[in-house]
Design a protein around this nucleic acid. Structure first.
Length: 562
RNA sequence: GCUCCCUUAGCUCAAUUGGCAGAGCAACUGACUCUUAAUCAGUAGGUUUUAGGUUCGAGCCCUAAAGGGAGCACCA
């Protein structure tokens, strides 16, 4: 393993210069040195055949009380405080004897420690749970002094037997102890954890270790993403990996990050969307295709925006936006199920009536009633399939008392809301009003259908009304979660829409957006298709009841420290 | 980029009207072989984010900077 010119420095070096030689770390370094004196490597090594704490806890039923007479007794159940109290009485009645349980080996981080004379109670935690070690000076003999040099935060291993203490606490009665990694820093306060939002983000590892729910939340994120992949995979969607470095940053109207390729000497953009390359793959014959990956937008940071975020885009040939509505419901409901969302919470399967379903919109297949209820802030949100479906125009009318068709009245309303109207397209003004007055109100889940065509340059128009685009957005908890189109596959119209869209932009921006190869691909023929985008971060926020996107992104962007 | 708010011991938080900077946890010393946020006794730990200013006196008032938070702008 040693390469020429490299010196392996396996020898622990307790005299290494400390960055912060405060009295707290000095105490830990003194223990580090003492552990080395005792003949242990404070940085540990491979630790085979351990069981997870979750697995070990599951073996509690194997513990027996062995009376001196040789008769083994099963222990009473110990799930509640009453049962624990009863256990203590029961144990006192048994007289002479001792607990006997399976031999186990565990490893984890010390999160709590209580000394009681020649006894130590050490709580260790691994990814699956937490358990108490019972460490007696007489019982561990040689390892007692090692244990005396343990600190909160150290990662240790233990061999012992699984038993219960006299108070009923499931514990590993230690026989041998191992130091696997010394911790030289002081952990956060043990009751309240790490509260400071900045420290929680910068030092996410501490948040994960010490804040209740943090690790679970991020594991749930992984489960949600895995469930979405499974949902799509089960339906024949092919996952692909498109380029993240784009010569042309298209597919959305966001400002890209720029970067530079040295050998080619060209500026490149970090992708702002997945759309245009996935549609090329529809042309190429991948009839159901998706990508679940990172996009980058050079925009402001807020509780709902991080400059890099995870987006799902899925395209299905021979479908349309109604197809994608069903797919959206399936992805979300199966994700809820994957994280253990409660099912059938008494929400009556709703009958889709005229108010939910515009006459023009036929369900593409009969809905399956599936009901989940999740907390969202101080509210609860019911995810009952099918989700409500209302048109943009209906919702506009309902929440503003103004007809979306009445451009004069809409402009007047916009002005009264303090929105800029001069020189703007009526549909843009209308959409500003919609965003200001309607979106926040949509607790949902609700599909908003049929957007003004002029704000949807990549979307097919309705056959009977070219002013309306076949697009929906799914709103839940006031957030836009999904956005889907019947994809525009007319190359000439697409080019025209791009040009009119770009008319207002500077030459430089215009060049950045006009993707001639994409138009050329459409000219070769793209099947009619439905396309869906889901903002994964916002979906995870919603499903984990998180108020800030920074709570569900492991390492959100922060200014560099100092 | 703009506005407002926050920053006190390693961590979590106090500090009255501008009047001696405090507690809990963590640490250190001691007691305890069944603890559960263990308990008890004692010890130590501070450039109050930074740089200026006002004042007899500033954690507190003023100015600026840094970092964070909320909102706005940006985000078809």
């Amino acid at each position: 393993m040693t390469r020429a010119g490299t010196v392996m420095t396996d020898e622990p070096n307790p005299t290494a210069p400390a960055v912060d030689e405060s009295f707290l770390t000095a105490a830990r370094r003194a223990k580090l040195a003492r552990i080395i004196e005792l003949g242990h490597d404070p940085w540990g090594s491979r630790f085979d055949d351990r069981q997870s704490i979750g697995e070990i806890r599951a073996r509690a039923g194997e513990i027996l009380f062995r009376r001196s007479s040789g008769i083994d007794l099963e222990l009473p159940s110990l799930d509640t405080e009453e049962q624990r109290a009863a256990f203590r009485g029961w144990l006192a009645e048994q007289g002479a004897g001792e607990m006997a349980g399976p031999r186990v080996r565990a490893a984890g981080r010390i999160v709590l420690s209580r000394d009681a004379g020649k006894l130590k109670f050490i709580d260790i935690r691994d990814m699956t749970g937490q358990i108490q070690l019972f460490v007696g000076k007489a019982q561990v003999s040689d390892d007692w002094e090692l244990a005396e040099n343990f600190d909160l935060g150290d990662i240790i291993g233990v061999d012992g037997s699984l038993r219960r203490t006299k108070t009923g606490e499931l514990s590993i009665f230690a026989e041998s102890l191992y130091i696997l990694a010394k911790s030289l820093e002081t952990p956060p306060e043990k009751h309240s954890g790490l509260q400071d939002a900045e420290l929680r983000q910068r030092q996410r590892y501490l948040d994960l270790i010490y804040n209740e729910g943090s690790l679970d939340r991020f594991l749930q994120r992984t489960q949600i993403v895995a469930a979405i992949r499974k949902t799509l995979g089960d339906r024949g969607f092919v996952e692909v990996e498109g380029p993240t470095l784009h010569a042309i940053a298209g597919g959305a109207a966001a400002r890209p990050f720029t970067t530079h390729h040295n050998a080619l000497d060209i500026d490149l953009y970090m992708r702002i969307a997945l759309e245009l390359h996935l549609k090329r793959l529809l042309v190429g014959g991948i009839e159901r295709v998706y990508e679940l990956g990172r996009v980058y937008r050079n925009e402001g940071i807020s509780p709902r925006h991080n400059p890099e975020f995870t987006m799902l885009e899925a395209y299905q040939a021979y479908g349309d936006y109604r197809t994608m509505m069903d797919l959206t419901e399936e992805c979300i409901c199966e994700a809820i199920q994957a994280i253990g969302g409660s099912r059938d919470v008494g929400c009556e399967p709703r009958v889709i009536d005229a108010s939910d379903r515009p006459a023009s919109l036929a369900m593409s297949r009969s809905p399956v009633a599936t009901c989940y209820e999740l907390p969202w802030g101080d509210k609860k949100i019911n995810f009952c399939r099918p989700f409500a479906r209302k048109t943009y125009a209906e919702l506009f009318q309902q929440h503003t008392r103004v007809s979306a068709q009445d451009e004069v009245a809409v402009a007047k309303l916009a002005k009264s809301l303090g929105l800029e109207t001069a020189g703007r397209h009526p549909d843009v003004i209308k959409n500003d009003v919609f965003e200001a007055k309607v979106e926040d109100q949509l607790v949902g889940p609700i599909f908003v259908l049929d957007y003004p065509a002029s704000i949807c340059p990549l979307t097919k128009r309705k056959a009977d009304d070219p002013a309306v685009a076949e697009r929906f957005e799914l709103f839940v908890g006031g957030m836009e979660i999904a956005n889907a189109y019947t994809e525009l596959n007319d190359p000439d119209l697409q080019e025209e829409l791009f040009r009119s869209q770009l008319a207002g932009l500077s030459e430089e921006d215009s060049m950045a957006k006009m993707d001639q190869d994409f138009i050329r691909a459409l000219r070769h023929g793209m099947p009619p298709a439905g396309g869906l985008g889901i903002g994964i971060d916002r979906l995870v926020m919603l499903l984990t009841n998180s108020a800030s996107i920074r709570d569900i992104i492991l390492f959100p962007l922060l200014r560099p420290e100092k």
